[in-house]
Design a protein around this nucleic acid. Structure first.
Length: 1068
RNA sequence: GGGUGCUUAGCUCAGUUGGUUAGAGCACUUCGUUUACACCGAAGGGGUCGUAGGUUCGAAUCCUUCAGCACCCACCA
């Protein structure tokens, strides 16, 4: 043991320990506790492209503390790790990077497949980073079950739920007002909006001079699309106009027909009390539009703003093509010119901005996919909304086992109010990075096909560089077998192969260069190559052997119309090429559903292949790019057949809201919809944990999805944590520049210290602060524990035993204390008070154990077995919080298997004796008081001094433990006396009087002063107790125990007071 | 506009169903190389628990008022 260094150096151990846990497969519940009671937690998946920030570090710590605690209890504990593809966030991020690289319009310039490829590549490389950072935090998650919201298994779950919901009538395609990000060219959900307060002008105007009333707006330009005027039905001023239609011409393409309608929500006090209704550009107004439609007095809907953020043709000749801001100025000017503008007041308003793209979101009417939260689910007579409510109140189907318990429970209220205001959930997005909506449209009969079939992933691999590429000549003649791959080409292919992980089949064009390419791939995966002549390069006709560049083939084909349907100079027409390529790939997809297939082929074929199942014109299709030699594209083709028998379909272009897949996380991670063993064992999960900010995004959706798809709650308990703030209480953010990288902190102070710091001060649902002083303090503690262990291991030879015998009072005391601590820690864990549990342990470790018991042990000796016993158990209590240092010490103690899979200490109730603990407390008290006197009289700490005790002390624990007092207070002798000596400092503890003869340093005045101070404090106390006990109501009403306790306190205090008075007397 | 949380020592926070002379860590003061630890040890100073009321024998704790701070929600056009 002597080789342990004086200070604990975490860098020396942490990485190695984590590796050894992984090597022993200790995170896998099947390895460690195959027969235990299951306990499962799904890690909230961080974004693939993210880097670990303090929030993640906190989550990981909380999860890991809990999970290690459960594992120590012998449960079959699973912490399942994963990442989220984070649709919008990731695409926005990669697009930004591409723009920085000079690609100004990534979507237009790269096209769908190529952009997806860029995003995928970025996501994959980034994923490794965050997963390694999670390892760094010491998180004990089972890497063998790693999941990703965008992998094949999770995609399957997504499609399955979509399929079911669609057929249950819960998913519909509708034309409604949605939130539209012009910058992102996509919808976003209500929850993805960030409201920003900004200055605005509130304009009040009349549509025309004839109109009897004015309206107010902050967005005059939208008024070009107004179709109604809403007033409060009780508003006397306007009542008479309700039902009337006014025709006004404000410059839009045609005069506006404005119907005056009644709406309860109109506040007569606001503005003029009349509101211009713009159904196309306000969700609220759209509701009125729907209502009017239902009541048989429909109003129009005129979209005056388009998806490009500019005014449409319907806005009128003068406005068409203007930005909204330009249109606003113009319209206001027009109002002014016509004397219609009554006022323009400054005001502030909250505008919704896109969470990810940052631009102000427009409300636009569009056809999108929605989840209907109010429709009854077939055969269940309940809506999704109702299920979401049941899950946190009475339990699903009134089953009390199916209740999600939220900690802290005040979040229930917030959750309910959110549900009450929930609108149908817009789930379609126009970005490309995400789960493609599993809907196809038949090109032949135009029916909609919704399929739950698994897609075939096709890697379109272009052959490596061949002679024809290197030397620039065209080759589509199959008989020409001397066109081999070049050395460069072979290297390209080998590089490509190294990127492929799982391949189930290989198809290839039967030309020489593709054959050679396919052979290299086949070799790695030990597969036979299937050749398909439909995958050959486009026929170049008369141009065989001529250069690819220049005036030949290329210039001929530059006019698409020439060869679209025809074969000029013998070249293959686009129609022929497309037909054979689509047919080949369709066959492949139908033969390999759910599999990954490599298709080795040529540039033009790959170009065309991208159009399979896409609604894209031939011209645009041919305008797409294709990869360089040796590179590849990946497409997914689902083997869909329309009811009419046609396979000629194209897929809906939209992707799903990322929260659709996140909502499935609790069960998609376990292999659902397969009824896997994991799903049976670990579902519903035991605990879920999240920040309050994603309560709605995520928790609500998980409950919705689980209740719908499985009729089960996703997790039993959900723990809401707050966010971390800096020392000033500010949020950590890039813009504020106050970011702290947890990995850097872990490197410097150790992961254990970081973990302790993260959870310290954390209480359920509340924010907490994080700063480096905290980490430093915890680093110090870790070092303290290290040194406690070092001392015990160096000085003791005992072997650990479960049963130890107490020999002295100190032994009984520490064992009683220890067992009480275990009990208290258990209770704190049950209440999710991790911070307090750690604090309690720290207090016990540092004060009781190190400062007192260890010091006593140096005096009493022969305590090896108890020291080892406490240390061993203490390490296990600490392990969930500080896994690395506890494992390091554990191994140093000679334990063979990991502390991770040891067991949680049991409370031995028989060891607990609180009365004894109280009686023992006289010991530290006496020592402290003597030290106090020494300090006050500035006695050299090294000098030993004598002590005298009054005879009463003989009846206390002091008398039996004089050696301890002597050593800890550095005394030369202890004797009993009936009389106070002269020139001595005196101290009172209960009935005990202690005298320290200090002839040479004693100062009567100082001593008087000292005693006086204590006496007056005691007197005040005695008086207050006397008063309390003199209060008849108190004695009559307070519980007997309380009164008795107060009486005891009074007697003790009075006794002390008398003794102090006596001592003071003697000084005079 | 509605809602939630917070306000306790210089700082960061504990304080369980109302009953201890209100606690901890950091910081501060004084002292200290006694062979586990200076990332340490010893001793000490420091709070009328945001304000004003109320309930109670008894309030940091329960109720009400007000103030400040933070956050969430909302269609004031």
């Amino acid at each position: 043991m002597s080789e342990l260094s004086k200070a604990y150096n975490p860098q020396e151990f942490e990485a190695e320990i984590y590796r050894s846990w992984e090597d022993q497969d200790l995170f896998n519940p099947d390895t460690t506790h195959p027969d235990g009671e299951p306990y499962s937690v799904m890690m909230p998946p961080p974004n693939v492209t993210g880097v670990l920030h303090l929030g993640h570090a906190l989550e990981n710590t909380l999860l890991d503390v809990m999970v290690r605690y459960q594992r120590l209890h012998g449960r079959r504990t699973l912490l399942l790790p994963g990442t989220d593809h984070a649709a919008v966030a990731t695409q926005a991020k990669v697009e930004k990077l591409l723009i920085e690289r000079g690609i100004e319009h990534p979507r237009e310039e790269l096209g769908r497949q190529k952009l997806l490829q860029e995003i995928r590549a970025y996501a994959e490389s980034s994923k490794t980073t965050i997963l390694n950072q999670i390892r760094k935090m010491g998180t004990s998650c089972d890497w063998s079950r790693l999941a990703y919201t965008f992998d094949a298994d999770r995609s399957r779950a997504v499609n399955e739920v979509f399929y079911r919901m669609y057929h249950d009538g819960l998913i519909y395609k509708g034309y409604r007002v949605v939130n539209w990000s012009v910058k992102g060219q996509s919808t976003c959900s209500d929850d993805e909006l960030v409201y920003v307060e900004r200055e605005a002008k509130l304009y009040t105007f009349k549509y025309s001079a004839e109109l009897p009333f004015a309206i107010s707006t902050t967005r005059p330009e939208t008024k070009l699309g107004d179709t109604a005027i809403a007033v409060n039905p009780k508003d006397k001023r306007y009542k008479k106009y309700i039902g009337k239609t006014f025709i006004v011409d404000v410059g839009a393409i045609k005069p506006l027909k404005l119907l005056v309608i009644a709406d309860e929500n109109i506040d007569p006090e606001f503005g003029t009390g009349a509101m211009g209704v713009t159904p196309a550009h306000s969700a609220v107004d759209f509701d009125m539009y729907e209502k009017q439609k239902a009541t048989g007095a429909p109003i129009d809907l005129i979209a005056v703003i388009g998806p490009d953020g500019r005014m449409t043709a319907d806005a009128g000749r003068d406005y068409r093509g203007l930005t909204t801001l330009e249109a606003r100025q113009k319209f206001v000017q027009w109002l002014q010119n016509n004397n219609l503008l009554l006022s323009a007041e400054d005001t502030t308003q909250n505008v919704g901005t896109s969470d990810r793209f940052g631009d102000v979101v427009e409300a636009l009417p569009m056809t999108q996919w929605f989840v209907d939260v109010n429709a009854k689910i077939p055969n269940r007579d309940k809506s999704l909304k109702e299920l979401m409510k049941e899950a946190v109140t009475v339990g699903l189907d009134h089953d009390e086992h199916k209740i999600v318990k939220i900690t802290p429970d005040r979040f229930n209220k917030i959750y309910f109010s959110w549900i009450d205001n929930l609108r149908d959930w817009c789930i379609s997005r126009q970005i490309w990075w995400g789960h493609r909506i599993p809907v196809w449209y038949c090109n032949d009969c135009h029916e909609v096909v919704v399929s739950d079939l698994e897609p075939c992933t096709i890697i379109l691999q272009r052959h490596g560089e061949a002679n024809s590429n290197a030397e620039d000549f065209l080759n589509s003649d199959i008989t020409k077998v001397d066109n081999h791959l070049t050395e460069t080409g072979r290297i390209q292919v080998k590089e490509a192969v190294s990127q492929m992980s799982k391949v189930d089949a290989i198809y290839a064009s039967d030309m020489q260069r593709t054959k050679e390419t396919a052979a290299i791939i086949a070799e790695k995966f030990k597969l036979e190559v299937e050749y398909d002549d439909r995958l050959r390069e486009v026929g170049v006709g008369e141009f065989e052997g001529t250069p690819d560049t220049g005036n030949g083939f290329n210039s001929l084909r530059s006019d698409f119309t020439v060869w679209h349907h025809d074969n000029p100079r013998g070249i293959e027409s686009f129609d022929e090429l497309k037909t054979r390529v689509f047919a080949s790939l369709t066959d492949i997809a139908f033969n390999h559903p759910g599999k990954t297939v490599v298709v080795v082929t040529h540039g033009d074929v790959i170009r065309v292949a991208q159009g399979l199942h896409e609604n894209i014109s031939d011209e645009n299709l041919f305008a797409l790019g294709f990869p360089e030699p040796g590179h590849s594209f990946e497409i997914k083709i689902t083997p869909v057949t329309c009811d009419c028998g046609s396979r000629h379909v194209f897929q809906d272009e939209d992707t799903l809201d990322t929260w659709f897949s996140s909502g499935l996380w609790p069960f998609s991670t376990l292999g659902w919809p397969e009824n896997t063993a994991d799903f049976k064992d670990f579902y519903p999960s035991s605990w879920m944990q999240m920040g309050s900010e994603i309560l709605f995004f995520w928790m609500a959706r998980m409950i919705l999805m689980s209740a719908y798809a499985i009729n089960e709650i996703p997790f039993k308990d959900v723990y809401i944590h707050g966010i971390l703030r800096d020392e000033q209480g500010k949020k950590f953010s890039k813009s504020a520049g106050n970011g702290i990288d947890p990995v850097v902190v872990a490197d410097k102070y150790g992961t254990d210290a970081l973990r302790l710091s993260l959870i310290s001060g954390v209480t359920p649902g509340n924010d907490s602060r994080f700063y480096l002083e905290k980490v430093e303090s915890n680093r110090n503690f870790v070092n303290k524990l290290w040194n406690i262990s070092r001392y015990i291991l160096m000085s003791s030879t005992a072997k650990y035993s479960d049963s130890v015998a107490a020999h002295t009072a100190a032994d009984d005391w520490i064992l009683s204390r220890f067992n009480r601590v275990v009990d208290a820690v258990n209770q704190l864990f049950a209440a999710y008070n991790f911070s307090q549990a750690a604090e309690l342990l720290r207090d016990f470790t540092w004060n009781d154990f190190a400062d007192w018991y260890l010091e006593i042990a140096k005096v009493e000796k022969k305590k090896d077995d108890i020291l080892i016993y406490i240390l061993n158990n203490l390490l296990r209590l600490w392990h969930p919080f500080i896994p690395f240092v506890t494992e390091t010490i554990w191994q140093a103690m000679g334990e063979r298997s990991s502390i991770m899979i040891s067991s949680w200490p049991k409370v031995e109730a028989s060891r607990v004796d609180q009365e004894f603990e109280t009686a023992f407390s006289v010991m530290p008290e006496a020592v402290t008081k003597i030290r106090n006197v020494r300090s006050e009289y500035r006695i050299d700490p090294a000098k030993k001094i004598p002590l005298l005790l009054n005879l009463k002390a003989k009846d206390t624990m002091l008398a039996d433990n004089l050696e301890i007092i002597k050593a800890l207070a550095r005394l030369s002798s202890i004797e009993f006396t009936a009389q106070k000596p002269d020139k001595a400092a005196s101290v009172v503890i209960g009935p005990i009087e202690m005298y320290i003869p200090l002839a040479e340093v004693i100062d009567i005045d100082q001593e008087k002063n000292r005693l006086d101070k204590e006496l007056s404090a005691t007197q005040t106390y005695v008086v207050s107790l006397k008063k309390k006990l003199g209060n008849k109501s108190f004695v009559a009403n307070a519980p007997k125990e309380i009164v008795a306790a107060e009486e005891t306190k009074f007697e003790e205090a009075e006794q002390k007071m008398i003794l102090l008075q006596k001592q003071l007397e003697e000084l005079k």
